[in-house]
Each structure stands twice: as structure tokens, then as C-alpha cells.
Design a protein around this nucleic acid. Sequence first.
RNA 1: GGUCCCGUAGCUUAACGGAUAGAGCAUCGGAUUUCGGCUCCGAAGGUUAUAGGUUCGAAUCCUAUCGGGAUCACCA
Length: 586
Amino acid sequence: MEITQSIKEAVAKAVSELYQHEVQESEVQVTPTRKEFEGDYTVLVFPFTRAAKKAPPVLAEELGNYLTENVDDIAGFNVIKGFLNLVISDAYWSKFLLSLSAQEDYGKHASNGKTAVVEYSSPNTNKPLHLGHVRNILLGWSMSKILDTAGYDVKRVQIINDRGVHICKSMLAWQKYGEGNTPESLGKKGDHLVGEYYVVYNNEEKEQRAILKAAGDENEPQILQEAREMLRKWEANDPETRKLWATMNGWVYAGFNETYKNLGVSFDKLYYESETYLLGKDMIEKGLEKGVFYKEEDGSVWTDLTDVKLDKKIVLRSDGTSVYVTQDLGTAQERYKDFQMDKSIYVVGNEQDHHFKVLFEILKRLGESYADNLYHLSYGMVELPSGKMKSREGTVVDADDLMNEVVVVAREESLERGDVSGLTVESQQEAWRRIGMAALKFHMIRVTPRKNMLFDPKESVDIQGQSGPFVQYSYVRTKSVLAKAGDWDIDISAYQTPQPQEKELLTIIRKYPDTILEAAKNYDPSLIANYAYELAKSYNKFFHDIPILRAETEAGKGFRLTLTQVVGRVLTSALGLLGIEVPERM
RNA sequence: GGUCCCGUAGCUUAACGGAUAGAGCAUCGGAUUUCGGCUCCGAAGGUUAUAGGUUCGAAUCCUAUCGGGAUCACCA
């Protein structure tokens, strides 16, 4: 059995037998012993002092004796204050390594029979994707991979905001000033083209507004009235408007798909707001009957959430049309019909914290069965060294530009100091792409989602230190060593002198499955990024300090090669959870 | 104004309520006739915003204060 599990069970049993007090295994805290102390694993005895009625050091001593006698691989112990440091037998490590090497998909948890839906990206179709979307997309994709590896059946979805007056604005500008230009005629990505006309519209509106203001005219700008008129036509199914709308959205989707492909992400189902914006109204009826909502004199429908500090919220306008939450009520229900998921995760920025609190609260009051299984994976804003991104001021970082840039830098660095000799031109380019994307992805995922993050373009392409390429480099090293070793078939059980560096590596590797579960439970991909870095760092030290191919004994060589192989596998897997691919050389 | 989130080294950041707060960048100084130097080792750098409280133990929990951000639309 796996060592920390054995320790936990034994401690629980010991407390029960020695002090007649029942404790759950899960209450026993076992952590790797800190480097400055002797031992491999540490048990915290503080939680049991009350039950045992003993001082921590005495209790630790008694538990230490019990564990040494009753658990096979515990060779000894020492006590420092209330910390019981256990020394694991030398024989344990090669046994453990052997069991690891037998598991090709180490870290992958068996199916738990549950379905999880992850919604992410969910852009508007009037402008290209930018840095903020990149954080969203990377978090969403990584979260979906983590849940998948933790045993869920994962569905990836997004809801595309493809209607509304903002969409009409770029349509209108293209109609007026587009001169029939298309992505093909200009050789431009469709989302960028449409985004440009959105800017054209905004400039025009601003100009008209200034003229009106100067003349003391309080009317709305002409062009805004035209945009509103276009939306009315769209809603009335005017064929010409619908056709233009379909065409321009088509351009945008083609552009988005290219960006998604470059980011290495995909979706199982797309929801379009144009098809869902009328949903949710039936739920209003139900809510009125249940007393969740009430009607004002003007016919508008509200819900009063002041008892949970969420104020009052309108859910149906006086003209009977629905608002944002109403649609989301409907889409939540729609999604449940589609997937009967056990868990639903919305990856959306923290500016919508309030909205999701309201949404979840209403669903709960409506008595929806899935209401308790919804989670808003809220993430902080991405800031630039120059300040905030503002689309109106042109300080946005475009997603496509960013990806290009990062690959260019990777190539430059690689040509300067890397080793891609022996690769075909295509393989070189592929390697550079993987390295550049690794730098970008790792840099964005390593920060705890909840926090605002500073995105420094210079640091995002860093290949040293706490970076994606650093981890990739460790992987490439494992490949290189294994290639040099050729075929080997060595019995490693005779290796009984594990070095501290080897034990440390194995201790870190042992944490991998737990780390995945923790990341899934906390909805936090940054845990995986930090884990991957820790493992890579530890392998680099091992590699530096200890000869592998020139090991003192044959068993030692086999042990270290096996260890190298396992490290390579875990690094590949962990990076995979971040959406990062490993290169063969770099 | 109400509500929510954040505040850790010069900068970017980590730490299930657990030992002397851990890394990276930048700075300074070292290591290679041996498996890939995009590596490794070391130095310096911290009153965890401030003041109280809770307890065996607090960056973490509670209260207040100060900073920063978000949000509180018959927009989405």
C-alpha cells in the first residue's frame, strides 16, 4: 500500500488503541519532512493531544514507537516539539519506484461516474480575442483537463454572445464604409476585420456626439439611432439584416476558430445567444407562483434578495422582455437538460461576481435540483505594466499578436543558445511553437486565479526560472538521457542506498495524484503549474548531483534510469494539464 | 454609501491553521576534461499594510483602520 496512506491508517489505529479515541484517517496530517530535519514524512500530533491527555512530545514518542513496530517500511523516528518525523526504510524506495514505472498513466484517477460541464471563453462577436480572453481560455481548458484526470466526464461549452446592439454597430459601420471588403479580399482574419469596423463605428459616434454637444442638441447621435433600428430589424427577422449578420458572424467564427486552434483548445457544444435569449421566461412564471418573484404595477418582475445582501433584481422588463439573468436562468436549465451534469463551472471574470451570486441564489430559490452544483470560477483582471487594458484607448493586447510574438522570441532564444540540430525545419518550427506557447501559458496559469495579475510581456516570454520552458527543458533532458542509455533491463530491487535527491524526487512524484485532486477540488490550475515547476527543479538538481549512466552499481543505474523515465512521464502529464506540449529537443 | 476581492523581499509571486514565510526575476559571488550550462551552488534582500483579538500554534480565522480593484442598469 501507498506509504502515506499506511501511516494515516496506523496513526488512526494507534490513537484508538492507545487512547480509546476514534479518529478518521482523513484527520491525520502527513506531510513530507522539511529538509532541515531528519526524516522522510512528518505526522502532526497536536490534533490528538486533547484526546490522549498527553503533552505533544510524549504523545509523539508513543506514536513513534507504535508506528515503528507496526508499519513495515518505517525504520525509525525522531520527535521535535509536536512533530513526529518518520524515517522510511531504504528498501521502500525502489519498491515504490517499481510500482510507479508500471503505471503508464500515473496520476489519472478512475472514473467517478460524474459529469462536469466547463463553460469558458464565451466572447462577443464584435471584436477579436485579447489578453483577458487568453487568461479565461487557458484557465478553462486547464480546468477541464484537470477534472477529466480527476475522474470526471467533462463537457466543454461556451455561450457566444452573437446578438445585440454592439453587434449591429460593427455591421452598420461595415455597411456604410466597408466597400464590400471581405476577409478574403483583404487577406485578413475575419474577427480582426469586424473589430476594425467596430472601432470605426465608435469613432463616428463619438464625433457625432461632440458635434451635437457643441450645438446644444441633446438628441442621440444619428448613427446610434441607426444601430438601434438595425437591431429592431434583426429582431423582426428582416432578411437583409439577418443575412449581413450571418455573413459577418461567419467571418468572426472563422477567425476565432483559428485562434482556438493555435491555443490548442476546443469545445463540445456551442450555445448561441441568438438562440437562447428568449429562454428563461417560463421560469419566471414558475417563480411567480412560488413567490420567488413579484410583479410591480408597471408589469416588470423582480426578486427581492435583500435578506442575503444582494438587493432587488429585475428579471423581466415592463415590456415583457428578458434581461441578462433571465437568459442565464434559461441557459442553466437548458444545459442541465443537455448534460444532467453533477457539476457546472462557469469560467468568467470577477467583474461578474455579483451577477453569478444572484443567478445561483435565484436558481436555489426556484428549487432547481442542480442549483447547489454550480460554481463560478472567478478570475482577476489582467493588468499591463502600463496600466489597465482599455479597448477604447487602443491599449489591448491582441491574442493573435501575442502568440506570434511569443514564438518569435522562442526562436531567437533557441538559435542563440539552444540545440535543435538534427531536427528537420518543420520539427524546429514545431519546437519553437511549443516553447513559446509554453512560456505564455505557464506564465498566465501559475498565478492563483482569484488574484489580479500583472502581465509583463518581457517576463511572459522568459525561458528561465519559474517558466514553462524551464519545465520543458527538464523533460528534454530525461529524453536525452534515456536515448543515450539505449535499451536496458536491470533489476533495481537490489538498490538499497537511495540518496536524498532521489528520495526527494520520489516524494514529489508521490504527491502528483493528490495534487490533481486538490486542483480539481479548489478549481485551481495554478497548483499544477507550481507542482510541475517543483518537480522539474528537483530533477535538475538530481541530474546535476548524481551520475546516472555512470552510477556506481548496475542496480543504481537502473534505478536512476527508471526514475528519469517516470519523471519524464509525470512532467509530460502535468504540462498536459496546463495545455502545454513538450518538445523533443530545444 | 452598501457588498465582494486583493495587500507577502526592489519587481513577479508561493505557502490543507503547523517547524526558521518558500521560489523566480533583477543584484553580487561561485561551479563544467563526466549523462544537454535554457543547468547547478551561494550571498544579500521580509515587523506578511496597520492595530487589536481567537489558540498549543496565525500570512491564513474574527474585529477595526488604511491603501488598491470590482460591483450595486428595465446593457450584456
